[in-house]
């Protein structure tokens, strides 16, 4: 049986990472930037799980790492979107180019 080689998964993950980076850079909406970060985290997870498939029998270390990444992504989404909601309530805007007080 021919299986899909690990390189194919890596290429898809790289393209997904590039698209996530593109999203995070080109959008000015804070929620869209968070969505781009989620795309990049998913690309990393895909790499981890793809390599985990090639570990010796009985080892799932890559998948354990992916579990941690998913947990961190959930925490990041909760905090990030909480901050976004607070900004929206206080300043009536979620556009990051409106928050430039710290610009030197």
């Amino acid at each position: 049986m021919t299986d899909v080689p690990v390189e194919a998964y890596l290429v898809v993950a790289v393209l997904l990472f590039g698209l996530g980076l593109f999203t995070a850079l080109r959008r000015t909406n804070a929620i869209m930037i968070l969505m781009g970060i989620e795309l990049m985290l998913n690309a990393v997870n895909l790499n981890l799980v793809a390599f985990s498939r090639y570990l010796p029998a009985g080892l799932v270390d890559g998948q354990v790492f992916a579990v941690f990444v998913i947990t961190l992504a959930a925490a990041e989404a909760a905090i990030g979107l909480g901050i976004v909601l607070m900004l929206a309530r206080k300043r009536q805007s979620v556009d990051v180019s409106d928050f430039t007080e710290l610009k030197g």
């Binding site: 929620i31 989620e38 997870n45 799980v49 992916a66 998913i70 992504a73 979107l81 976004v84 929206a88």
Partner: peptide, 24 residues
């Protein structure tokens, strides 16, 4: 992981994102 991905990401994180979009 596939099931966790659907539960946590598609279930929870997407709900939070869509709520944030609608509220903000």
């Amino acid at each position: 992981l596939a099931v966790v991905q659907i539960l946590v990401y598609v279930g929870a994180v997407m709900t939070v994102i869509i709520f944030a979009i609608m509220l903000s």
